[in-house]
Design a binder for these strands. Structure first.
Lengths: 222, 222
DNA sequence: AATTATTTTTAGACTTGTCTAAAAATTAGT
DNA sequence: ACTAATTTTTAGACAAGTCTAAAAATAATT
């Protein structure tokens, strides 16, 4: 069995992996198609192929899920993606909203030595510039605690740990508002009407919509 | 005109470029096929395509040569290849005989910011780990002086500037013989019979075949 | 200059990944 | 439970890049 996958195949595995985080059910053809901006018929073809290679479990009309082997590959790709993001920000002066497209290319470079050495060179980072956890060499991931800022109650204090949405527009909004990873947030008030919240962050008061709050991972301070 | 080339197209341009260094004539279909380890018929197809994109000059049965636009692209790829090689050796602990395959992949990453920043990060290196010149941002290259060790006469002294053959086996031979870029060589004796030479290098006497000497670029010391 | 050998091109086929349009299966709605 | 709506799959086509085998052009030989 040829385990040297095409970039396309790798992208499918990665898509299924990331869609699998939120659920334990099989991932629908349509969901994959939407994620990869392709057509359902193309997805069906590819899932069959990956199923033949025993990288996904697949029964007609029942959606797809990763096998152990498939998940291992997906995690390796994500590991590479995030390591490269760290490299770009830490050493090459990229902003956190500029790294995605380049990392999307770099993640497909095949060389275990490269990945290992890069990891070492970066001093074994645990999180990427967006706060996402970097899988270790064995594929273990410290998933986010999963607490969103939107769930924090008034008068509580938390620390920004990551962003869920990594689109450039969201990241630029955060930059312009002075919200960074590590920032301490105090929830001053929650508006019942639209669930927006008034917060104290980086020395200023700021009103943020629920949409924003739902996309910020935080660690609650006791 | 879509200027976003596939990796395959880029590899053809690079192959034609490197074959063009030794000659001013058009490059034959067969030569390209051999370089890329493919068939002549495939080369014909691709050359036509590149000709349509005005990246190569092509007349049936007359071989191919790069247009100004094609050469510019080829040089950019070579620039990226060599910058990555420097990165791998300088920062990621790769040996000079290990970098080629990885750089072959990395050279296709598309991001002008990445290339610029990498160049700056590496402090604008002028040569890669094999002594090959790195084109600058505008595509200018300091070609090798072109003097090979084989042309150096007995009792003359020279400095190793680069290797012509970058295969792993040749580089490992050099490592095991203590021959490095920058090494000072004195030609002690030239054997008329087989053109081998006895040299003094890195504190030892060494006999090398003409084959070896023909693959080492040197700068003659006056 | 005619013939032979080599190189190059063409023609047709195959693979990968994609698409559209139609058919089949599943899910939802009453 | 039975249509209706939605999702998924199939069938057939296409583009990129490759191949083999045969034809055409060029180069070499005598």
């Amino acid at each position: 069995m040829n385990l040297d996958l095409s970039q396309t195949e790798e992208n499918y595995l990665k898509a299924i992996f990331s869609l699998s985080i939120a659920t334990s059910k099989a991932i629908s053809t349509n969901a994959i198609a939407e994620k990869l901006e392709t057509k359902a018929s193309s997805v069906t073809d590819m899932i069959k192929k990956l199923s033949d290679k025993e990288l996904v479990h697949y029964k007609k009309y029942q959606g797809a899920s990763l096998t152990v082997a498939g998940k291992a590959i997906a995690v390796r790709i994500i590991r590479k993606h995030r390591l490269w993001e760290v490299f770009l920000v830490k050493h090459l002066n990229f902003k956190w909203d500029e790294v995605h497209d380049v990392a999307e290319q770099l993640e497909h470079i095949k060389s275990t030595k490269l990945t290992q050495q890069l990891d070492e060179y970066l001093e074994f980072p645990t999180h990427d510039p967006h706060g996402d956890p970097i899988p270790d060499e064995n594929g273990n991931i410290d998933f986010h605690t999963g607490v969103m800022l939107s769930s924090i109650l008034a008068s509580e204090i938390a620390i920004i740990m990551g962003v869920k949405d990594s689109t450039s527009s969201f990241l630029k909004y955060l930059d312009s508002s002075g919200i960074k990873l590590g920032s301490v947030v105090e929830v001053l008030h929650k508006e019942e009407f639209d669930n927006s919240m008034l917060i104290q962050i980086e020395g200023q008061k700021l009103s943020i919509s629920q949409q924003i709050a739902k996309n910020l991972y935080v660690k609650k301070q006791r």
